[in-house]
């Protein structure tokens, strides 16, 4: 039986990117991927729930009545661009450029804040102007909880990036801060992927069906 591919820690470390350069960084990043797998199941369950309940509008507003293209497109574009800037920050990380890394992370959280603001506004419009609240129907319960969970994740991501920015400002790029910046990047891209599914499963199908 040959050695398992997963046993990176017995290999030479010098050729690896900085975030993998310490054994601990390697361990944490693998664990984080597994955590993301668990998150995938979590969101998968929420999507399943939403799709089951989508037609249960109980005489209240339907997806077609509520969703407007404009704000949704704005949210989508802002979040996708933030994923791009987050990717740029990882490139700067690999180039060991602390300033560039910090700058792109700041852009990323600003875009994240815009996204959260737009989403809050969307929720507010539905709830106050259209009477579409969490307790109006099963469909709306599913909608608010699925999107709310994603929105909470983005907000937590913002808090997390701020914490990492403080550490980067103080310590620069070390194997530990690099690992943290890399992991938050993974998290951010993951949320972007979830949004693409939301866009498809919630908004696109909502407009069509």
């Amino acid at each position: 039986m040959t050695d398992s591919v997963l046993r990176l820690h017995e290999r030479d470390k010098s050729s690896l990117p900085i975030e993998y350069s310490k054994e601990e960084g390697d361990l944490r990043i693998v664990g984080f991927w597994i955590f993301l797998a668990a998150e995938l199941v979590l969101f998968g369950t929420l999507f399943g729930t939403y799709l089951v309940l989508q037609s249960h509008t109980a005489g209240g507003p339907t997806a077609k009545d509520l969703f407007e293209i404009g704000p949704v497109m704005a949210e989508t574009i802002v979040l996708l661009v933030s994923s791009f800037t987050c990717g740029l920050s990882t490139i700067e990380l690999r180039r060991h450029n602390t300033k560039g890394l910090i700058a792109w992370l700041i852009v990323t959280i600003l875009l994240g804040l815009v996204f959260v603001g737009l989403e809050a506004n969307e929720f507010y419009t539905y709830a106050v102007h259209e009477g579409a609240t969490l307790s109006r129907s099963a469909f709306l319960s599913g909608f608010f909880v699925l999107l709310g969970t994603h929105g909470c994740h983005v907000s937590l991501g913002i808090v997390w990036i701020i914490g990492i920015l403080l550490q980067l400002a103080k310590r620069g790029i070390t194997p530990v801060t690099a690992r943290k910046a890399f992991m938050v990047g993974l998290y951010w891209h993951f949320l972007d992927v979830v949004w693409i599914f939301i866009f498809t499963a919630v908004y696109l199908t909502g407009w069509v069906i």
Partner: peptide
């Protein structure tokens, strides 16, 4: 007051 598993307002106990 959401309606995931209630009988009223379209909830689904079987879910």
């Amino acid at each position: 007051g959401a309606h995931f598993f209630t009988i009223a307002a379209g909830g689904s106990p079987m879910l």
